[in-house]
Design a protein around this nucleic acid. Structure first.
Length: 589
RNA sequence: GCGGCCGUAGUCUAGCCUGGCCUAGGACAUCGGCCUGCCACGCCGGCGACCCGGGUUCAAAUCCCGGCGGCCGCACCA
C-alpha cells in the first residue's frame, strides 16, 4: 500500500525526500521564503534546532567536557585589523576575470598558474595590476572561447560592514570563529592559570559570502561553525590520551597517494599513523579519531567517512598540515563536514605583530639552564674617530651582526668587513654573557578541529532516513532525537486520555522531552512519531487502568514491552544514557 | 556569473504546449465533529495555492519581457 505523497516522490533522491520531510515537519527549510527566498540561508525549525543543538552537545561532551577544555562566545563582527592580522583580508578574496565574449568567470590566479607557469605562492603575492599586466603580457585568453578577458577584480568572500555611524571604521563578519579565541588568548590563558596544553572552543555563526551557494544546508552563507583551538607547546607535541584511541582505525586518503592518482583510502590505526609519521602532531590524529567516533555516534558508518589530506595549494593560508573529514551523501558524494588543521603559531604571531601585544607564554624548565651568548659591544669613541659622520650607521649595522661571525673574523683576519666598513678589534669588544634561563618564552602552536554543525545535522538526518513498509522512519540515535517520548492513549475515551496525561506529567517532571497525542487512530500516531524519529512511544491502554502498566513501543522494530509506570523514570533515564537497551525496559508482549 | 530545465495550498502534484469550459482539480497532511481495543487504509464537514513586477489580449496559471528563487552542468567553495 502506498501513501499519497510516496509515488510522487518515487523518482526523488534522498535529499529531495529529506527536504520535503524537513520542511513539512520542521527540521529545516530555506529562509525568507515569503520574499522569494535568498540562497545560502536556512532556518532550523522546532525539531531541527533541537536536533542540531543535541549534536553540538555531543561535541561538547566528547571534545570539551571529557578533556576539560572550555567554550567561549565572542562577537560575530570584528574590526578590520583582526582579519588583517589573521591573513583573511589578504587571502579571503579571489581575483576574478570575466570573458568579455562568453561572460564566463575565471579565477585569474588559476589562469596564471596554468598558462603563465607561476606557482600559487607567486600569484598569491601579486597585486591586481600585476595580474592584469601578466595576463596582457602573456596574451592569456578565455580558455573556453578564446575571447578577451576583462580587468581582474577582487571578490571578497567576507561580509563587509561599517561599525558605527561613520563609514571609516570597517568591520567584517567572521568567516570562522577561531579568531575570537586567538584575539583573547592571553586573557583566557591567565584564566585557566596558564595551563598548557589547553583547548578553547566556540560554537556560533560564521559568515562567508559564497559566490553561488546551493545544496540546501550543505553550503550556506551563514552557518554554525564549531571551532576548537587547541594550544600546545611545540616542544611537547605528545598526547597523553593517545592510548585511548590507539586501536581506532581511520580511513586516510594521503596527499602522496593522491598525487599518484590513487584516491583510495588506506585504513590505518592511530598507532600506525603515528608510528609511520604520517601526521606531525599526535594531538592532530587524536582529534581526528575523536571526530570519527562523533560521526559514528551520529550513525554515520565507518565506510561512509574518510579523511583527505590536503595538498599544500589546497590548504588554508594558516595551515601547515590539514585533513578534511568527509561523509558520503546520496546526492553530492563525498562532502566535507570537518577540517583538522595544524595552524602552528600562525594566528597568535599575526595578532602579536598587528597589535604589538606579546602573545608568548612562559614555561619554567625543570632545571635552570645556563646559556652563554656572545654580545657585540661597540666602542663608540673609537668608531667616531675612524668613521666620523658615518659612525651612527656603523653602530646601527653592528646591532645586526652575528657576534660569532664577527669574533671569528677578528681572530682570523684581524678585521671584519661589513657594509664596506672595516671593523677591527679597536672598534668593538666581543663579550661573553651568561644568562640563567628559568624557562622559555614561546608562542603556543595550535591544532584546530573545525566542524560544520549544519552539515553534521544534515548528514545525521540522511543516515537516519529509512523506509519500512512504505513508511518513513527516522532512525535517529536516541540521544539526538528532538522528541524523546510520545505518550498516547490507545483510544480517546473511557478515562484513557486522563490516565495518559498523568503519565505525560510524570515524564515531563523527570525532564524528558515528551509529546502527548490523542488524535485519530493509534497506528497513524505511531507513524507520525516514527517519521520524526521519536525513539519510544508509551501507550496507555485498558490494562493500564487495571494494573498501572503501560506498553513501550520501539521505533525501529515496532516491538512492544510492558512496564510499570512507577519504574518508568529510572528505566528511561538509563535507556537514553545508553545504559540499557529496549529489551531491558519491560516484559515482552 | 553563464547555459539547460523549472517555480500551482503545509507537502506531492493535475492544468500550461493549443489563452475562455479554472469560482484552479486530486492525493496526503492539517483542523472540527462522529467513530474507534495497537501500526498512517471508517464517515461528514472546514481551512488552504497559480513566485514577484510589467506587458500583450475583450480575456492570462497558460503567451512575452524583467526580477527573485530552485535543480543540473561549467566556474567557485582556503
Amino acid at each position: 500500500m502506498l501513501i499519497g505523497w510516496y509515488p510522487a516522490m518515487k523518482g526523488a533522491d534522498k535529499f529531495e525526500r529529506i527536504s520535503e520531510l524537513a520542511r513539512r515537519r520542521g527540521f529545516f527549510w530555506p529562509s525568507y521564503e515569503i520574499y522569494g527566498g535568498i540562497s545560502g540561508f536556512i532556518n532550523w525549525g522546532p525539531l531541527g534546532a533541537v536536533m542540531k543543538r543535541k549534536i553540538e552537545d555531543k561535541f561538547r561532551d566528547i571534545f570539551l567536557r571529557r578533556l576539560n577544555f572550555y567554550e567561549i562566545e565572542s562577537p560575530i563582527i570584528a574590526p578590520e585589523r583582526v582579519f588583517k592580522a589573521s591573513g583573511h583580508v589578504d587571502h579571503f578574496k579571489e581575483p576574478l576575470v570575466e570573458c568579455l565574449k562568453c561572460r564566463r568567470k575565471f579565477r585569474a590566479d588559476h589562469l596564471l598558474q596554468e598558462f603563465a607557469d607561476l606557482s600559487s605562492q607567486e600569484t598569491d603575492r601579486m597585486s591586481l595590476q600585476e595580474i592584469a599586466g601578466e595576463i596582457e603580457q602573456r596574451n592569456i585568453k578565455c580558455p573556453e572561447c578564446n575571447g578577451a578577458l576583462s580587468e581582474p577584480k577582487y571578490f571578497l568572500t567576507m561580509f563587509q560592514t561599517t561599525i558605527g555611524p561613520y563609514s571609516e571604521s570597517v568591520g567584517y563578519g567572521r568567516p570562522e570563529a577561531a579568531q575570537g579565541i586567538f584575539v583573547e588568548f592571553k586573557r583566557l590563558y591567565e584564566q585557566v592559570r596558564e595551563r598548557l596544553p589547553i583547548g578553547f572552543a566556540q560554537i556560533g555563526h560564521a559568515l562567508r559570502n559564497e559566490i553561488s551557494p546551493r545544496q540546501g544546508p550543505i553550503r550556506l552563507r551563514e552557518f554554525t561553525i564549531i571551532d576548537l583551538e587547541f594550544f600546545f607547546d611545540p616542544e611537547k607535541p605528545q598526547c597523553p590520551f593517545l592510548n585511548e584511541v590507539a586501536d581506532e582505525s581511520l580511513r586516510l586518503v594521503l596527499a602522496e597517494n593522491r598525487l599518484k592518482g590513487d584516491g583510495k583510502p588506506v585504513k590505518l590505526t592511530v598507532k600506525e599513523i603515528v608510528a609511520q609519521g604520517l601526521i606531525k602532531v599526535e594531538w592532530h590524529v587524536f582529534f581526528m579519531a575523536l571526530a570519527k567516533r562523533l560521526l559514528a555516534d551520529l550513525s554515520i558508518p565507518e565506510d561512509k567517512q574518510r579523511f583527505i589530506e590536503k595538498h599544500p595549494w589546497e590548504r588554508a593560508h594558516y595551515s601547515t598540515q590539514g585533513f578534511d573529514q568527509e561523509v558520503y551523501l546520496d546526492r553530492w558524494g563525498w562532502v566535507e563536514v570537518a577540517g583538522f588543521n595544524y595552524r602552528t603559531d600562525y594566528d597568535l604571531k599575526g595578532h602579536m605583530m598587528e597589535s604589538g601585544v606579546d602573545m608568548r607564554v612562559f614555561k619554567p624548565s625543570e632545571k635552570e639552564i645556563m646559556r652563554v651568548e656572545m654580545q657585540v659591544k661597540p666602542l663608540i669613541e673609537s668608531i667616531s674617530q675612524t668613521f666620523k659622520d658615518k659612525a651612527p650607521k656603523v653602530v646601527e649595522a653592528l646591532q645586526n651582526v652575528d657576534p660569532n661571525a664577527l669574533a671569528e673574523a677578528l681572530k682570523r683576519h684581524g678585521f671584519y668587513e661589513m657594509n664596506g666598513f672595516r671593523i677591527t678589534s679597536e672598534h668593538v669588544e666581543v663579550i661573553q654573557k651568561e644568562f640563567r634561563e628559568k624557562g622559555r618564552h614561546f608562542i603556543p602552536h595550535v591544532i584546530e578541529p573545525s566542524f560544520g554543525s549544519d552539515r553534521l545535522t544534515y548528514a545525521a538526518l540522511e543516515y537516519a532516513y529509512t523506509i519500512k513498509d512504505d513508511r518513513v522512519i527516522l532512525k535517529l540515535p536516541r540521544d539526538i532525537a528532538p522528541i524523546q517520548l510520545a505518550v498516547l492513549p490507545l483510544v480517546s475515551r473511557d478515562g484513557l486520555p486522563e490516565k495518559a496525561k498523568e503519565v505525560y506529567r510524570i515524564l515531563i517532571d523527570e525532564g524528558f522531552t515528551v509529546e502527548y497525542d490523542d488524535s485519530g487512530y493509534i497506528g497513524r500516531r505511531y507513524a507520525r512519531f516514527d517519521e520524526v524519529g521519536v525513539p519510544l512511544c508509551i501507550t496507555v491502554d485498558y490494562q493500564t487502568l487495571k494494573d498501572d502498566t503501560v506498553t513501550i513501543r520501539d521505533r525501529d522494530t515496532w516491538r512492544q514491552v510492558r512496564a510499570e509506570i512507577r519504574g518508568l523514570p529510572w528505566l528511561l533515564h538509563n535507556y537514553f544514557r545508553f545504559k540499557i537497551n529496549f529489551d531491558d525496559l519491560g516484559l515482552p508482549i
